[in-house]
Amino acid sequence: MIALIRKDFRVYRAAFIAVALWLIVILLNPIVNAIIMTLQSGSNDAANVLEDWGMAGHWVVICVAAVFGGCAFAIERRDRSAEFLAMMPISRGKILASKLITASVAVVPLWFIASCMLAGFCGILQSLQFMQTTACVIVLAFGISWLCSALTRSPSISACLGLAGVLLEIVLATQVHEYGYSNSYIMNLVRISAAVTGIFCFIGGCIVFTWRVSP
């Protein structure tokens, strides 16, 4: 199992590098700005900066989730190494678990960091609400791109479809807003629909991968 996870870390190396770069951008930039602002004009503006970057950070996490989902199966399918893996006496369940663990190692900490930054601005209770929403949207993006990765050979198209799903969710949310529903209602709707769709697609992707004979 460890060997599998190590392999997956290496396969998604490019994605991890992207995550590291974004981490540097998200962390360094606002912290530096916050320090400068605190020194110059007081803590309020610093908190604003943290908020902006905290929000941006959440969007980045959603993109990262989509990328990892998209890379899940498609990369190995493209260069035939999926066949090499398929010929090893490993259960498909273990292969799936390894990919999920690898993706989580990238996505979860990043989500947590972005949430902490947001908490720095609007307090823990508020940011908890926001964290829940983004968690569901992350599940949505990941689930859709995971399913597409299982069905296609292209990691980029799969990732884009995952993000398209998120955009669709936002569009739906704004449409519902037109009807005058309360914000909290919309938030709950978004959370539930995103999480359910995401989980459904994720399971679909797992089933496709397990039942398929050709890798």
Partner: peptide, 30 residues
């Protein structure tokens, strides 16, 4: 799978794996 050996028409080992890494990888599963 653990009872057969298959050599494909074109090699399909992960391109980035070194020979020793490929051996260690396979060894973990058989």
């Amino acid at each position: 799978k653990s009872h057969i050996g298959y050599v494909p028409d074109r090699p399909n080992v992960y391109g980035w794996m070194r020979v020793q890494e490929a051996i260690d990888f396979a060894r973990a599963f058989y």
